[in-house]
Design a protein around this nucleic acid. Structure first.
Length: 900
RNA sequence: GGGCGAAUAGCUCAGCGGUUCAGAGCGCCUGCCUUACACGCAGGAAGUCGGGGGUUCGAAUCCCUCUUCGCCCACCA
């Protein structure tokens, strides 16, 4: 035992005084690194973006992982929690570009090399902060293996993956309409272009028709500006109304360009006017139509979303984009064109229109569909392998409800656009010979063309950030090299993340894992956490300003309080609501619990003798009812907590332990045992209470450690009986000792609790002064029960024998409350000097009525053949038993009523 | 237009293979600074489990439907 004198411990736990020191100690002792022996248990952290410091939303995620990994570590697994950070291409580049903008510069002013250098500087800074934050909230990551997705070694993995896919012909160059962000100046994947319901306008525009059944036709569009890029008007082949138009020529307004009227099955005659303007370069559907009909595909916008001939700001013939419109922002152009159309009488009408508009997931700019050349990954073969594994249950998703979403996406998988027109990221390793046009992907930067020896150029683009993070389960361990780490830590076990990156990341990690790692899954369980929201149910985010910095919470309430709230506040996968404006309400319960633990510890330590016998040396004959009860409860708690953790029901595990500590241990056992601790320190059984107390508390600390690691470690260090300088972080997870299972003690003690609660209740109701003694009669009180409680501070005196016998004849001048216990024994509280018979009668009558109602229902149920036949046997038996009990109770109650 | 989730005490949420299920924390009320803890102790009030219908001996718990929120997916002009 340490030298700390328990009584000198302050009455309030001060997390700030101990947390940093404890964390350092864990680090120094290397407990976060996987032990050399033992079955591995691997979690890879979802590498945070380096764009901003973490908020409590990220905290939930990481704390969940920490609880799981600490639990497994204590169970003896070689626990590897791999930490790291993500370079987050667009996101990070955006932030730095914003910084530049504040200086009045763009990245083009700075130049590629200097720009990337600047991003590195930024990233190093936030990276450090984020790692620091993870440490502050107690994350037990294996920092010795920290990775960054742009580390040289990692980059090599990324390149290897790309080249392999290239060699397998799973990467191809696609010329098609993709989502383009005019602000970020890059292509986006389908997932990165988020659709949002928007109320826009539907414009009905007349196109003149030469030689048709009518002088003009009307198209409907939400984007009038794109008419400059129209190369056809399409109708449905099934559309009888418009059949006569097919083959004729329409003239685009403003420019007068002649375009054919064609029939295409993609057109739905029911929608709009039945005429569809076809803009192949700025609409994915129109692009498909364009391909089928071999239409021209002129770009009429520049990359930054301005109107421009051939996609350029200057030049061009000026035929497509009139001079007065060229150079205008697309939304300005829209207004202008609408005005022009109106002036020419070509705007038939404008209607409000609900539709989904895609936005850039990083900068929120309205995405522009744009024809361009990009690199794609063929996803079908990759997805199929994952689905095979899914069907064979090689991995699972919890909570299960996400399965449908997952399967739906996988089955409707579309090819993945992986090229980004950015500077921050992994440069695409595709090289082209400027002489012979040979194009290939290479693991090294080639000096010359391997075919003709000519000069080569590298593709200027970088890879989608997810193209690196999808390798996260194995690239950090050295892949493609067959390292010992890779052999040991792949496949992993559990992946914990937020559901919003299920497609971005989780699905693709599964694909990469199966594909690159010998058909083996990357992890067995995907645990999708809930989202942290504010009281208005808005997602916690920096941009909304409702983010809570975990460091603030830690400073005010301690890390354990933060963890307690986040873990205890959410059941599996459910959202957690926290109020950024009321941290006290949100986090005080956790702080209070930590303080409770602290004070239980303080009390126990102050009561322990010099030497505390180990629990297994205690003769079980010497255990009182209370001792046996708390030990039985301890077993039950350990079992429940373990089972809950195994099933990722972390909140349940936490609450189970909480109830044990606060309700069972502190409120009952410690109180019951106080008289035994007092002066009688010597003699037979003297060591029993210290031994039981120490054992129970020690076990509780172990069970709680994954959730509240700091306070538990701090207290555990002060407990006697540890081996050397052992740390709780690596201490053994408690295994229930079946010898202490004791149903009889649990029942017996429950009865006593009931009796005492009833007594207190009555005393409180009648406002009995503390000095007035309570006489408590329990017909079934055993000598053991009496021994347990006869010195109880409430001065309850337990008497064996029938209560009615004792009360008959009713002592004059004495009345009291009553209580009926579930085993049918009656308990009377005799309150000296207090009389209220009428009130007693009322209570008794009410109880009797209630009991009668219950009894009637129960009897009916038992008489019902359906019930007896259907319900499980033990349930029926229990109900029968209950009926007996209640009948006895009823009899006793009726007697009491008569007696009054 | 599809799919999913949520609606239970004033607040935040558990409970949802039907039979001690009407619960917890906070808040509130009444007593207590009882020598571990007022970040505490004891006692207490409080909900027709969103509305309606159905299945059943019995339903917060299963089915249908409606209402209100939230999320995801979808190329519909």
């Amino acid at each position: 035992m340490g030298t700390t004198k328990p009584l000198e411990l302050p009455p309030q736990y001060a997390p700030a005084d101990v947390e940093a020191g404890l964390y350092r100690r864990w680090l120094e002792r290397g407990v976060f690194q996987p032990r050399a022996d033992g079955e591995p248990y691997v979690i890879v952290i979802p590498p945070p973006n380096l764009t901003a410091v973490l908020h409590v939303g990220h905290g939930l995620n990481n704390i969940v992982q920490d609880v799981v990994i600490r639990f497994e570590r204590m169970r003896g697994r070689a626990a590897e929690w791999l930490p790291g950070t993500d370079h987050a291409g667009i996101a990070t580049q955006n932030v730095v570009e914003k910084q530049l903008a504040a200086e009045g510069k763009t990245r083009f002013d700075v130049g590629r090399e200097a720009f990337v250098e600047r991003v590195w500087a930024f990233v190093r800074e936030t990276g450090d902060t984020i790692i620091e934050q993870l440490k502050i909230i107690g994350c037990s990551c294996d920092w010795s293996r920290t990775r960054f997705t742009l580390d040289p070694a990692y980059s090599r993995s990324v390149r290897e993956a790309f080249v392999r896919l290239w060699e397998e012909q799973l990467i191809y160059r696609g010329h098609r309409v993709i989502h383009w962000c005019p602000h970020c100046l890059t292509a986006l994947s389908d997932e990165e272009a988020e659709s949002r319901e928007t109320t826009g306008k539907l414009y009905y525009i007349r196109y003149a028709v030469a030689g048709g059944p009518a002088p003009f036709l009307t198209v409907a569009t939400t984007r009038p500006e794109t008419l400059l890029g129209d190369t056809a008007v399409a109708v449905s082949p099934k559309d009888k109304r418009h059949r006569a138009f097919v083959g004729k020529t329409a003239r685009l307004p403003l420019t007068g360009i002649a375009v054919p009227i064609i029939a295409d099955a993609a057109v739905d005659p029911e929608v709009g006017t039945g005429f569809v303007k076809v803009t192949p370069a700025h609409d994915p559907n129109d692009f498909e139509i364009g391909l089928r009909h071999k239409l021209a595909m002129p770009l009429i916008m520049t990359e930054d979303g301005r109107m421009g001939e051939d996609g350029k700001r200057e030049g061009g013939s000026g035929k497509r984009v009139p001079a007065e419109i060229a150079g205008l922002d697309r939304f300005e152009a829209r207004k202008k064109i609408v005005k022009l159309l109106e002036a020419q009488g070509l705007l038939e009408k404008v209607e409000p229109h609900q539709h989904a508009v895609r936005h850039c997931y990083r900068c929120d700019t309205v995405v522009e569909p744009r024809l361009s050349d990009q690199w794609f990954v063929k996803m079908k073969p990759l997805a199929e392998r994952v689905m095979k594994g899914y069907k064979k249950k090689e991995f699972r998703i919890v909570p299960e409800r996400w399965n449908a979403t997952f399967v739906n996406w996988m089955e409707g998988i579309r090819d993945w656009n992986i090229s980004r027109q950015l500077w921050w990221g992994h440069r695409i390793p595709v090289f082209t010979c400027t002489t012979c046009q040979h194009q290939w992907a290479d693991r090294q930067d080639p000096a010359t063309c391997p075919k003709c020896g000519g000069p080569v150029t590298q593709d200027p683009d970088v890879l989608d950030t997810w193209f690196s993070s999808w390798l996260w389960p194995f690239a950090p361990f050295g892949w493609p090299d067959q390292t010992p780490d890779l052999a040991r830590f792949y496949p992993g076990h559990t992946l914990v993340t937020a559901p919003d990156i299920l497609f971005f990341w989780v699905a693709r990690m599964l694909m990469a894992g199966y594909h690159f790692m010998d058909q083996r899954r990357p992890f067995a369980t995907v645990y999708l956490t809930g989202t942290v929201r504010d009281t208005q149910h808005r997602k916690m985010s920096k941009s909304l300003g409702n983010g809570i910095d975990p460091r603030d919470v830690v400073r005010l309430y301690g890390t354990d309080a933060l963890r307690w709230t986040l873990i205890g506040g959410s059941s599996l996968g459910a959202d957690v609501t926290v109020d950024p404006n009321d941290l006290e309400t949100t986090f005080a319960p956790g702080r209070n619990f930590a303080n409770k633990l602290w004070n239980i510890g303080r009390f126990i330590l102050s009561q322990l003798p010099e030497r505390v016998p180990a629990i297994h040396t205690i003769d079980r004959q010497q255990l009182t009812l209370a001792d046996r009860w708390i030990l039985a409860r301890l077993n039950a708690t350990a079992r429940a907590a373990t089972a809950a953790l195994e099933q990722f029901r972390l909140d349940e595990a936490a609450k189970t332990c909480y109830d044990f500590v606060w309700k069972d241990l502190a409120d009952w056992y410690v109180e019951a045992v106080k008289p035994r601790l007092g002066g009688g320190g010597a003699g037979v059984g003297a060591g029993v209470v210290p031994a039981v107390l120490t054992h129970a508390f020690d076990t509780a600390l172990r069970l709680l450690h994954p959730v509240v690691p700091f306070i538990t470690e701090e207290l555990w260090q002060k407990l006697p009986g540890r081996e050397g300088d052992e740390l709780l972080a690596t201490a053994r997870w408690p295994a229930p000792d079946p010898r202490y299972d004791d149903a009889a003690a649990e029942r017996g003690f429950a009865l006593l609790q009931e009796a005492i609660t009833a007594s207190r209740s009555i005393r409180a109701e009648y406002q009995v002064p503390p000095k007035v003694k309570t006489l408590f009669f329990i017909s079934a009180a055993t000598p053991e029960a009496r021994r347990t409680f006869e010195d109880e501070r409430e001065v309850i005196v337990l008497m064996s024998g029938s209560a009615s016998a004792v009360m008959e004849p009713p002592p004059p001048n004495v009345a009291g409350g009553h209580a009926v216990l579930t085993d049918g024994t009656a308990a009377f509280v005799k309150l000296e000097g207090f009389i209220d018979v009428s009130r007693e009668c009322r209570r008794l009558t009410e109880d009797l009525d209630r009991l009668d109602r219950q009894l009637t229902a129960l009897t009916a149920r038992l008489a019902n053949q359906n019930f007896v036949a259907r319900a499980p046997a033990d349930v029926v038996a229990k109900e029968r038993e209950k009926e007996q009990t209640w009948r006895t109770q009823r009899g006793v109650l009726a007697d009491k009523l008569k007696a009054l």
